[in-house]
Amino acid sequence: MYNFNYHRPTSIDEAVKQYDEAEDGQYLAGGHTLIPTMKQRLSAPTDLIDLSGIKAMQGITRSDDGAEKMLQIGALARHEEVASSPIVKSMVPVLSALAGGIGDAQVRNRGTLGGSVANCDPAADYPAAVLGLNAQLVTNRRSLDAEQFFMGMFETALDEGELLTSVHFPRPEAAAYVKFPNPASRYALVGLLVAKTNDGVRVAVTGAAPAVFRAAAMEAALTDDFSVSALDSILLPAGDMNSDMHASAEYRAHLCTVMAQRAVAAIVAQDQARARQVTSEVTSESTS
């Protein structure tokens, strides 16, 4: 790792100012992508701006956003924090499960939501949640739709120096995330998030292509018939997918269908369990 100037601002404004003044600045959140990259000398910022002292970027809260209750997660929330948060569990349980499956325990204890989302690794888990749940990405300058945010491999809509400060997740009716990990790195070879939301069924795919994307064909099929078998004949085009020594594009395309079906099966099971619960509550009320 080359040396750099280290900064530890306590406010968003201070951080942005330090970034702007730096010759080649980088924001540092959990550092679990940036530090390994710097150690391999693939990245050599002149200045590292450590965001961990910024209170405004921390915390997990429930906010009223118009008519809808939103789950608001500070960009610095660590994966473990999201995984174990009672608020997340009650509002967007899929996010808690997804965060609990990122990397390994040590990585989850340091890595952050904002770092992962802003880095936009094609095999990262969080982008599937952001896109699949139609989250809002709030920066120091604006609020972006998930659709606008992810541009390509390691490429987002964030401008130079723009700082992702929090992510706001609407509460889905139901959702599930299923991934097939790369046997070496444990990143997602493919990861599928399927959600029933206010504006319909959404399916987001990570790992398979240069950047997270929505699988329109799957969404359409599931809108017509939210069942595992609805996806039987749906195969996403392999031509758009990554092909490397770990998996061919064709295999990734196949896995997308399998993982999507498993996510749907999980949602159907959740629905059934909920229905059973409601039934039993009704039954117990009527019998008591």
Binding site: P183, A247, S248, E250, Y251, A253, H254
Partner: peptide, 17 residues
């Protein structure tokens, strides 16, 4: 014997081609 090789051995690969 990676998952992809096994999957191909099952003939599933050909089914999608």
């Amino acid at each position: 014997a990676t998952p992809e090789k096994v999957w191909r051995a099952l003939g599933a690969g050909r089914a999608h081609v």
